[in-house]
Amino acid sequence: MNTRTLPLFVTIGIFLLGWVICWLQFPNMLSTRVIGNLLTDNAWLGIVAVGMTLVILSGGIDLSVGSVIAFSGVFIAVMLRDTTLHPLVIFAMVLVLTTAYGAAMGWLIDVLAMPAFIVTLAGMFLARGGAYLLSIESVPITHEFFKTLQGAYWLMPGKGRLTLIGVLMLVTVLAGMIIAHKTRFGASVYALGGGEATARLMGVRQRRTTVVVYAFSGLMAGLAGIVFAVNNGSGYSLAAVGAELSAIAAVVIGGTLLTGGAGYMFGTLIGVLTMGLIQTYITFDGQLLSWWIRIVIGLLLLVFILLQKGLVKISQARLARGEA
């Protein structure tokens, strides 16, 4: 078996195992209600993680996404409060803004040959500051259209609600899968993550690819910001603090190599759902305190880092033994 697919199977295995454990304790876990809520509650994280997956595959990191989500939320709320524009117009503005923001960061990373960590760290402070500038207070959203969005769902058998937001997340993941695995752009992203010098030799247009990768991450952060605003019905500059770290965690638990070049978009969906599952379990239990979420996620991350390190060792040992 290809060693690269193993982390994906481990991811899926852990998710299923976790589900079985939950189900044994709380048989309700298998109901469509829980599934529906899992998708809806984690939609924003799933969307932003799709962008993060592409960034990490390219060998980079995007720390700005949490702040961009907060900025998007505040921007939407303030625009709705102060103008008469239709929410869809404002959404379009948000997406254009955040995409351009990501593209600018990608351009800086390539032109200055700076680590993505530093550039997007600056981007993180800048976006958060921009959100404060718009409003320090939480701004409620009262527009009718938002109620329509919040209430849009398809009733699954068993009275579970498959919401528009949940579907949007699944569609985003699907789009991410196609982009990453079925386009030449996606191949360039993997190539960059595998080695920049070699990728250039093979004909990857590095600047274009880097700019598009971060622009895509910005777009996903903007979209996640919209979903976040719809879910919460408000825009708040202190929202989604640390969301970038949750997204990175989901990507790694999803089996993507943090150093770039290896991983699957589908794994990220499972990573997001695994994190959501832990949250759900703790809610069901009612006794456990919420820091257990972090402890379990921390342990899972550790498992995956060890797994990846181990896999690299195994494939090297195989090569040394001459087993092609």
Partner: peptide, 29 residues
Amino acid sequence: VYQEVNLLPNLTVAQNLMFGREPRRFGLI
């Protein structure tokens, strides 16, 4: 062909061979 940095070990053999001119159907690889 150089001493070492020619291809990408993290891509498959097929991806390495066809990189940049992948056969496509309906616009997808």
